[in-house]
Simulated scan of single mutants.
Amino acid sequence: MTAPDSSAATVDYRTDPIGAARQGTNPNVLGRMRTGWAVIGNTQHLPGYCLLLHDGTADQLTELSRPDRVAFMHDLVLLGEAVEKACRAADPAFWRINYEVLGNFWPHLHGHIHPRYQWEPEHRRTAPVSLYGPERETPEHALDSRHDSLRKEIAAVLQEIVDEDTRQ
């Protein structure tokens, strides 16, 4: 792990999540990965929703060299594995993980990890998460202390997986 950069003014994680992660002031950070920062999402309409924020200037995968693309996707898969293990342990209705790399709204390379659950309505469970629409962003789904145990478990499992991956 690299030490946070505390030489600059404090950055607001809501407007610059990567700058805040570098400073150690982003409360959503789960861990540092080779290509970026694993964070838990500000919304938890699907508990365990996480993102991998690329720590660079790329807007999309094709702006990276092929080896860097593979490294980013590898980190995304490791984060997905951690989310799957933690969510499966927390909720017996855990079903699967969906991965997305979109970048249409925020023009910075990042990937989404969406845990999916059997308790979701059938027409939602088998469809893309985006079809939930604005209900994903409502206050009752905001990240807060209700999610502390899941957040800690994802971070712990992620650290184990990254350590294991590093040894291989």
Results as ranks from 00 to 15, higher is better:
A3V: 12
S130N: 11
T25K: 05
M1R: 10
L30S: 09
P27E: 08
K152L: 06
I40N: 05
Y132V: 10
L78Q: 13
P115L: 01
R136Q: 11
P67S: 07
L76A: 07
A142K: 07
R146K: 05
H114I: 15
E81K: 08
C50L: 00
N98H: 11
A21I: 02
E164G: 13
Q60F: 03
R146S: 07
L109D: 00
R32V: 04
P27F: 05
Q60P: 00
V29F: 08
V157N: 04
S145M: 01
T57Y: 02
S145V: 10
E84A: 13
G56V: 00
T35R: 15
W95A: 12
D12E: 05
P17V: 09
Y99M: 02
R125K: 12
A89R: 15
E120V: 07
S149R: 13
A20P: 09
H108N: 00
E84H: 11
T138F: 15
S130Y: 12
E153D: 14
D148R: 08
E84K: 10
P47T: 03
L102T: 14
E140G: 09
D163L: 06
D75I: 13
T15I: 13
C50N: 06
D55C: 02
A86E: 08
F72T: 10
A3T: 12
F105T: 15
S7K: 12
Q118T: 14
V77H: 11
L109F: 08
A155P: 05
R22Q: 09
K152Q: 10
S6M: 10
H147L: 09
G31N: 05
G133T: 05
H123D: 14
D55I: 02
R88S: 14
E140Y: 04
L52G: 02
R116W: 10
C87Q: 02
A90G: 08
A38G: 06
I161E: 01
N104Y: 00
R69K: 14
A58P: 08
H114M: 14
D163G: 11
P128E: 01
L78N: 02
A82W: 00
G24M: 07
G103H: 00
G133C: 05
A127D: 13
A142R: 09
P4G: 03
D5M: 01
R167V: 00
G80H: 03
H147Q: 14
E164N: 13
I113N: 06
P92T: 08
E153P: 01
Q44V: 09
G24Q: 04
E63G: 12
L79K: 01
W37R: 02
N28C: 15
P139C: 07
L158I: 01
H45S: 14
G19C: 08
A21Q: 04
V83D: 03
F72P: 00
P4A: 06
H123Q: 14
H54N: 08
P115Q: 05
R22A: 02
V11L: 12
H54M: 03
R32W: 10
K152G: 06
E122D: 12
D75H: 05
A93K: 13
G41H: 09
N104Q: 07
P139A: 14
S145F: 03
V77T: 13
T166M: 07
F94N: 01
D5G: 03
H123F: 13
P27T: 12
T57I: 09
V101Q: 05
Q44A: 04
L52E: 00
L78G: 04
D148M: 01
E122Y: 05
